[in-house]
């Protein structure tokens, strides 16, 4: 990359730590997709796309790869994988998106030579903890609802989820 540049500019490739962590998240999802060969195939393809995107420094590859990982996890859930692997799989896919994009922007803004490890570890830890909390919450919901499972209750909760998601899209993290 830098050999073509007469000016010898810095290497703005994605940072190593976040790239490796993103690939770990992809491996997590692929592991959760072991329940069905179909899901596993999609996950493997997603992992490849993610790796290619990180190698080439292309956001498109990272986004597509993460999307395929999530799709793979959901496909596993559709063909009968239990709740826990599905939740872990979706979490892994979203973490891969988060960490992969972080590796890209950090690489572009600070380059590989800069010291960024502390920042990356904090970001990954925060994202991972949120994921862990969500998986536990999802499992808790599943455990409570296993009993009677009235359709109206589920529907009410689901509509609530969609409305909350729409509401969240209008919230900005930027304080005025």
């Amino acid at each position: 990359m830098s050999t073509d540049d007469p000016l010898n500019r810095i290497d703005r490739a994605p940072t190593r730590a976040s790239s490796v962590l993103a690939l770990c998240a992809a491996v997590l999802t692929t592991g959760a997709g072991l329940y069905s060969p179909f899901a596993l195939g999609i996950c493997l393809l997603g992992g490849l796309a993610l790796a290619a995107g990180l190698a080439a420094g292309a956001q498109r590859g990272v986004t597509a790869g993460s999307g395929m990982l999530v799709t793979g996890a959901l496909a596993g859930g559709l063909v009968g994988a239990p709740v826990l692997p599905t939740l872990v799989g979706v979490t892994g896919g979203l973490l891969a998106l988060d960490l992969g994009s972080t590796a890209l922007t950090l690489g572009d803004q600070l380059g590989r030579a800069a010291e960024t490890l502390r920042l990356e570890v904090l970001h990954a830890a925060a994202g991972g903890l949120v994921g862990l909390g969500l998986v536990v919450a999802g499992l808790a919901v599943h455990e409570t609802a296993t009993g009677g499972q009235p359709l109206t209750a589920v529907l009410g909760l689901v509509v609530a989820v969609v409305l909350l998601s729409a509401a969240l899209r209008r919230v900005s993290p930027v304080t005025e």
Binding site: V70, A73, L74, G76, G77, L78, A81, P82, V83, T86, L87, V90, T91, L94, D98, G127, V130, G131, G133, L134, V135, A137, G138, V141, H142, A145, V154, V158, V161, L164, S165, L168, R169, V171, S172, P173, V174, T175
Partner: peptide
């Protein structure tokens, strides 16, 4: 499929994480 339905919880959680962490 309850597993897929519950996957939405993960997405919603991350959406909240993205939107609600202040800058």
């Amino acid at each position: 499929s309850p597993s897929v339905l519950l996957g939405g919880v993960i997405g919603l959680g991350y959406a909240a994480y993205a939107r609600l962490t202040p800058l």
